[in-house]
Amino acid sequence: MIQSLFDGILVGAILSLGAIGLTMMMHILRFANFSHAELLTVGAYVALVFDAVFSALVPAFATKWGSLSLTAALAVATLLSIAITGATAVAADRLIFKRLRENAGPLTMVFASFGVALVMRNVISLLFGLQTMHYSNDIAFAMVISLDPLLLIKPDQFFVLILALTAMAALHLVMTRTPLGFALRAISENPPLAQANGINLKRMVTITWMIGGGLAALAGVFYALTNQISPIMGRDLVLSLFAATIVGGIGSVPGAFIGGFVVGLASSLALLVIPSGYNPALPFMIILITLYFRPFGLFGEER
C-alpha cells in the first residue's frame, strides 16, 4: 500500500512535468495539441544523439552523478535538446498552426496536430528504428527506504519529482508575477484587447511554443531516463498527459502538477482493487468521477 502510494507519486511526477507544459500551451494557444507528446519524443532523441556525442568527446562527462543516472554529458545534451525541441515547436507553428490559427476553428487545429504527430513519430522511427533504447543500459537500482513495510525509491524518480516541483513553481511565478506572464495571460483571455494594449501577439505565441517545447523536451528526457526511449513513447504518454492536464483544469499550472499525481496514483492504486488488465481504463474513470463533481477540473474555472 505505502509502496503503491509512493510509486503513484513518483510515476506521476513525470506526468506532472509533461502536463505543465501542455496546460500552458492549451491555455494560451487555445487548442488541444496532440503533437505535444511527440515533442517529448523529439526531446528524448535529440538528447540521445548529443549525449552520445559528448560522452565520446569528453569521457569524463560520462560518469554518473552520485546515485543518479544523470551524467554531465546528458545534462548538457538536455539543455541543447530543450533549445532544439523548442525550435522544432516554433517551426511546426510557423509551418502549420499559424496558418490555421488565422482562418480555422480550434478543432481543425486539433486534427492538424494529429497529422503532425503522425508525421513526427514516423519520421523519428525511420531515422532511429522502432526498437527501444536507453541512455544507459545499466539498471539504476532502487534504494531501500524501509524493509517493513517494504519501501523502495529510485533516486532518479525522486530527482524528477523535485524537478517537476521546480518547473511548476517557476512557471507559476512567471505566469502570475512577471510582465511576460501578464502578457501571456492577456493573450489567452482576449487577443484583440491584448494587442490593442501593445502586446506583440506574434512574439508571445513564439515564446509560448518555445517554453512548451522546452518543457516537453525536459519531460521527454526524464521519462526516457527513468523508463526507455522509443518512437512511440509520446503516443504512450499522450493520453495520460491530457488526462493530467484536464483533471487539473486547463490553464492551471499547479492543477497540472496535481493532475499528474492523480493520474499516477490512480493507475498505481488501481491494482489494489481491480485486475491489472483494466489498468489502462482506470485513470479515465478517475477523470470521469473528478469531472462529475468539478466540470472544469480541480483548479480550472468556467470563463
Binding site: 490555421l100 494529429f114 497529422g115 508525421v119
Partner: peptide, 21 residues
C-alpha cells in the same frame, strides 16, 4: 512507416488548403 507519414501529410495539407473542410 512511410504510409503513416503520407497519411499525416495528407490530413495536414488538406486542412491547410481547406481549413473548414
Amino acid at each position: 512507416t512511410i504510409q503513416y507519414i503520407l497519411i499525416g501529410l495528407v490530413i495536414v495539407l488538406t486542412l491547410l488548403a481547406r481549413p473548414r473542410g
